[in-house]
Simulated scan of single mutants.
Amino acid sequence: VEVNGEKWILSKRHKTKVPFQVKLLDIPLQIIERYRPMQKDNRIFPGLNYWSICKPLKRMIKECGITKNISFHCARHGFATLALCKGMPIESVSRVLGHTNIVTTQIYAKITTQKLDNDLTMFGDKLSKTFNGITMS
């Protein structure tokens, strides 16, 4: 749907039936446009489902010589970690993932050293501004 001139996906999660909304950013919009000529039944990717992605993914992982057990579901963990590292609040990440409890999001989202460093630097900068001009004698 279009909201304030921007495109969003509005739906409900299959597992939890929790409503979710995701803003379509530039790269996903470009992908949608690329596949528009192949659309059927008003679906962007006709015939695409979880299993039609998993089997080719497993084959590609094997062909690349990767022995780690990787699944399509790992993308959710990767998204959560990347979003948090780039400053997205955990409440927003939780909503995008469709979690009913933020504790579930905390399990998914690994706090990296870089995220911790960025957060502490930002906190330090704010403290410095708050106490600007006060020095220890």
Score class of each variant (00 low, 15 high):
Val1Asn: 06
Glu2Met: 04
Val3Ile: 05
Gly5Gln: 07
Trp8Phe: 10
Ile9Val: 12
Ser11Trp: 03
Arg13Gln: 10
Arg13Cys: 08
His14Met: 09
Lys15Asp: 00
Lys15Cys: 01
Thr16Lys: 09
Lys17Ser: 15
Lys17Phe: 00
Pro19Thr: 04
Pro19Gln: 02
Gln21Thr: 08
Gln21Glu: 08
Val22Ile: 14
Val22Asp: 01
Lys23Ala: 02
Leu24Tyr: 05
Leu24Gln: 10
Leu25Val: 07
Leu25Met: 14
Ile27Asp: 13
Pro28Tyr: 01
Pro28Gly: 00
Pro28Trp: 03
Pro28Leu: 02
Gln30Val: 04
Ile31Cys: 04
Ile32Arg: 02
Glu33Gly: 08
Glu33Phe: 05
Glu33Arg: 13
Tyr35Pro: 08
Arg36Ile: 13
Lys40Met: 11
Lys40Phe: 11
Asp41Lys: 07
Asp41His: 12
Arg43Ile: 04
Arg43Val: 11
Arg43Phe: 04
Ile44Val: 13
Leu48Tyr: 03
Leu48Thr: 07
Asn49Phe: 09
Tyr50Glu: 10
Trp51Gly: 03
Trp51Ile: 04
Ile53Trp: 07
Cys54Glu: 15
Lys55Trp: 11
Lys55Thr: 15
Pro56Val: 09
Pro56Gly: 07
Leu57Met: 14
Leu57Glu: 11
Leu57Asp: 04
Lys58Cys: 09
Arg59Ser: 08
Met60Cys: 15
Glu63Cys: 08
Cys64Tyr: 09
Ile66Thr: 05
Lys68His: 08
Asn69Pro: 05
Asn69Thr: 13
Ile70Asp: 12
Ser71Leu: 09
Ser71Asp: 10
Ser71Gln: 11
Ser71Glu: 11
Phe72His: 05
Phe72Glu: 09
Phe72Arg: 06
Phe72Cys: 15
His73Tyr: 12
His73Ala: 02
Ala75Val: 04
Arg76Tyr: 00
Arg76Gly: 13
Arg76Leu: 14
Gly78Thr: 14
Phe79Cys: 09
Phe79Trp: 13
Ala80Met: 01
Thr81Arg: 11
Thr81Lys: 11
Leu82Gln: 12
Leu84Asp: 04
Cys85Trp: 11
Lys86Pro: 05
Gly87Lys: 03
Met88Ala: 12
Pro89Glu: 12
Pro89Val: 06
Pro89Gly: 08
Ile90Gly: 05
Ile90Lys: 01
Ser92Val: 12
Ser94Glu: 01
Ser94Met: 01
Leu97Ala: 02
Leu97Lys: 03
Ile102Met: 03
Ile102Leu: 05
Ile102Ala: 01
Val103Gln: 14
Val103His: 10
Thr104Arg: 01
Gln106Leu: 03
Tyr108Asp: 00
Tyr108Pro: 00
Asp117Cys: 09
Asn118Glu: 15
Asn118Tyr: 12
Asn118Arg: 02
Leu120Arg: 06
Met122Asp: 14
Lys126Tyr: 08
Ser128Arg: 07
Ser128Glu: 12
Lys129Ile: 07
Thr130Cys: 09
Thr135Gly: 01
Met136Val: 10
Ser137Val: 03
